[in-house]
Amino acid sequence: MAEFLIIEDEAEKRSSIENEIRAYFGDPGIQFCVAQTFAEAAKLIFERRFDLIVTDLMLPRRKGDEPSDFSDNLLDFLSSSSLNSSAVVVAISQFGDLIERQATSFKRLGIFLLDYNNQSDWRTCLKVCLQRVEHKQTVDFAIICALEEERVGFREVEGDATFGELSRYHGLDCRDISIAGFNGICVVQPRMGLVDAAAICSQILSLFRPRLICMAGICAGFEGEVELGTLLVSDPSWEHQSGKWKGEDFKLSHYQEPLQNSVRTILSQVIEEDPTCQSLTSDLPELYRSLERAAAIMPTVSGSAVIASSDKASEIREQHRKVGGLDMEVYGLYRAAAIHSDSISCFAAKTVVDLANEAKGDDLHHAGAVFSARFVAKAIHRILSD
């Protein structure tokens, strides 16, 4: 169900707005969050995500105060609230001079500014906004995979998880998926690589507004640092190709994207509770063995090319003394999520299936994808339940 915030201190006007919304959705039981002061509105805008915000322009600053113009503050708050950057916002005021003064500023932010005295116009425009809310799809989480064989791994996630139907939304290759009562989508990129990963991540965040976005799948590891079959959570990630060539010398531009500390703490505890991950791999004979630690949070590096060369892998490894994994997408995901909003939980967990050398093969691909999918499902449940 969509989330609605009504910022209005006058009971009669607030009731008229609520009745319009209830009538449109045909549900008399719809619940609203209500703010009757500027302080209440500010708190809700920064703490909760809403699909529709309907607001007045005159409101008491605090309980007991006289109503005053808070429209400039409202614009500042709405433009800086990462949680509500995609919310549909409608401002309805009965003060014509205030509407005229703020018309340009509100239009610039895509906010509808309506005159409450014109009953027909504001009701009609509100219905148009409600249509936008009705057709906007939101999910709790989104998973990105570079390959279909990585997404197929989620078929073998056990417990309270459902691998749903295929769907297309704005050209995205989606499959519905639910985990422990949370609803999400799993999207396969059109092509491998960090450019597609960044583009798809940005599109998903704008279209579906998930609380969490992550990546599952397989990757390469660095020999001597990790063993085949180890699951790596990337922290930090960077692009090994970013820098400057001068003659025969390459100077790396070391731009890193880390895990959020809150996400890292949860994932670290998930790993510590079952460091051998035998609960996730006991039916995968290719991976099931006595490893003291089958999962780790380690630095990983991304690039646009498949690496199957010991020499090239050694060259990349010199960029960080503790780098554990090599893939083609994670940095694009992390960077896009960081630019979009610092309130979105984001992580990547991939299984090492080769060592980026000439012996690179696909024998571990399926088992690695299943291991990653199971860990990611477990992590999603823990993060969203926190």
Rank of each mutant, 00 (worst) to 15 (best):
Q94L: 04
D327V: 04
S80Y: 13
L147D: 13
E47Q: 14
L5N: 10
F371C: 05
E150T: 10
E18I: 14
E315P: 13
K322Y: 11
P275G: 00
G64V: 14
I344R: 00
V157Y: 08
T138P: 01
I92P: 01
V270R: 03
S309E: 04
Q256S: 12
W122I: 04
S304N: 13
N117A: 07
S279P: 10
A39K: 14
A377G: 04
M192K: 08
H340Q: 03
P299Q: 02
G171W: 01
K63S: 14
S68M: 09
I144T: 06
P258A: 08
A41N: 05
L252H: 15
S81W: 15
G164V: 10
S310R: 10
C125E: 06
A348E: 02
M328R: 01
F112Y: 13
S237W: 03
V54G: 09
A216K: 02
A348Q: 03
G110D: 15
A337R: 00
F347E: 04
I185V: 03
D51K: 07
S15W: 15
E10K: 11
F222E: 02
A296D: 12
I383K: 03
L287V: 05
L166Q: 08
A180V: 03
A103V: 10
V34R: 10
A216E: 02
Y116K: 10
E148R: 15
S93Y: 12
E156K: 14
Q102M: 10
L326N: 00
G224H: 05
G110N: 15
R209E: 07
A373Q: 06
E223I: 03
E257K: 15
H320C: 14
N73I: 07
H135K: 02
Q137I: 06
A199I: 11
I213K: 00
A87F: 11
D386S: 14
A294S: 15
Q256T: 11
R209D: 05
L172C: 01
L44I: 05
R168G: 05
E18M: 12
R175I: 07
A11H: 09
S372W: 00
E134I: 11
F250M: 12
S82P: 11
S16N: 11
S178F: 04
F347T: 05
V34D: 04
D76I: 15
T230H: 04
R191K: 13
N118M: 10
S341K: 03
S268Q: 08
E47N: 14
R14T: 13
V306W: 03
Y288T: 04
Y24G: 13
V330F: 00
I266W: 08
D140H: 09
G29L: 11
Q278V: 08
A91Y: 12
S341Y: 04
L130C: 11
G224A: 04
D115Q: 04
I297E: 01
Y116L: 12
F46D: 02
A336M: 01
I179C: 13
L355E: 01
Q94P: 06
R151T: 13
K360L: 09
F163E: 06
D327Q: 05
G153P: 08
D56Y: 07
P67I: 05
R264D: 02
E257C: 14
L212M: 03
I6E: 11
A35H: 07
P285Y: 02
I213W: 00
L205I: 06
I45E: 07
T276C: 02
L5W: 07
L384W: 02
A377V: 05
T265P: 00
